[in-house]
Simulated assay, not measured.
Amino acid sequence: MSTPSLVEHISSANQSTLDISHALLKNALDSVDQFNALSLAFARNILAEQVDAGKKLLAARTLPELFALPGALLQPQFEHFIAFVRGSQEIAGDARSELLQLLESRHGELNQSLTSALEHYGKTSGNSEIALAAVKSAISAANSAFENTSRAVRQVANLADSNLSAATTSAVRSTGTTSQTRKKAA
């Protein structure tokens, strides 16, 4: 059984890079497709709400009926907007999760391939233990930095998601309170 040559290692690394590029592009295109579908649904819903609002405005016969309409007309549109924001957040979160999973899995494969190549080089060359130890130490430091960065990115993303969810919930509550106040005043 022969050990893989340097050419085979380079070819394998190139194939891996091509696979990663394909997966990243597919992830990006899937996310854009989902966002476009969400945007189109949002536009359709808002258009339908605008048509209904116009009909209600034209149907108002008295001044109190006319003054009672703005809150009732804006509430459904605001709810569609909140749904759009939440959907956008979900699409971005899913894309981010898939991207991190892909990068982490490929990072492990790259480490394994690099370690294999270094061991092969160590076996075929003469006095290279010091150089190999230095390269392995650098790889270990890079792995540690990658893990720390990955952990930090996840924490920031989770914090941003929770802040956006809290802001959306707060906006929905305040709008609900405002519309209830308007109904009581009318």
Rank of each mutant, 00 (worst) to 15 (best):
Met1Glu: 02
Leu6Gly: 03
Leu6Ala: 03
Val7Asp: 02
His9Arg: 07
Ile10Gln: 08
Ile10Ala: 10
Ala13Phe: 06
Asn14Asp: 11
Ser16Cys: 06
Thr17Arg: 05
Leu18Val: 14
Leu18Asn: 07
Ile20Asn: 02
Ile20Leu: 11
Ser21Ile: 09
His22Val: 10
Ala23Gln: 02
Ala23Lys: 01
Ala28Met: 02
Ser31Arg: 04
Ser31Ala: 14
Val32Ala: 15
Val32Gln: 15
Leu40Asp: 04
Arg44Val: 15
Arg44Tyr: 11
Ala48Met: 12
Glu49Asn: 14
Val51Tyr: 11
Gly54Thr: 05
Lys55Ala: 15
Lys55Asp: 12
Ala59Lys: 09
Ala59Asn: 01
Ala60Ile: 03
Arg61Gly: 06
Phe67Thr: 15
Leu69Ile: 01
Leu69Met: 01
Gly71Lys: 01
Gly71Arg: 00
Ala72Gly: 04
Leu73Lys: 00
Gln75Ala: 10
Phe78Tyr: 13
Glu79Trp: 13
Glu79His: 11
Ile82Met: 08
Phe84Trp: 12
Gly87Cys: 05
Gly87Met: 04
Ser88Phe: 13
Ser88Met: 14
Ile91Glu: 07
Ala95Ser: 05
Ala95Thr: 02
Leu100Pro: 04
Leu100Ile: 12
Leu102Phe: 00
Leu102Gly: 01
His107Asp: 01
Leu114Cys: 01
Thr115Ser: 15
Thr115Cys: 06
Ser116His: 09
Ser116Ala: 13
Leu118Gly: 00
Glu119Asp: 13
Tyr121Leu: 11
Tyr121Gly: 02
Tyr121Thr: 14
Gly122Pro: 01
Thr124Met: 10
Thr124Asn: 12
Thr124Gln: 08
Ser125Ala: 08
Asn127Thr: 11
Asn127Gly: 05
Glu129Phe: 07
Ile130Cys: 00
Ala133Met: 05
Lys136Met: 12
Ser137Val: 03
Ile139Leu: 15
Ala142Val: 15
Ala142Lys: 15
Asn143Pro: 15
Glu147Val: 12
Glu147Cys: 09
Asn148Pro: 01
Asn148Asp: 09
Thr149Met: 05
Ser150Glu: 06
Ala152Tyr: 06
Val153Trp: 03
Arg154Val: 09
Arg154Asp: 12
Arg154Glu: 04
Gln155Phe: 12
Ala157Asp: 09
Ala157Pro: 01
Asp161Phe: 02
Asp161Cys: 03
Asn163Ser: 11
Leu164Trp: 04
Ser165Phe: 07
Ala167Lys: 02
Thr168Val: 11
Thr169Met: 07
Ser170Leu: 10
Arg173Asp: 15
Arg173Asn: 14
Ser174Leu: 12
Ser174Asp: 15
Thr175Gln: 08
Thr178Trp: 06
Ser179Ile: 13
Gln180Ile: 13
Gln180Pro: 03
Thr181Met: 13
Lys184Phe: 05
Ala185His: 09
Ala185Thr: 09
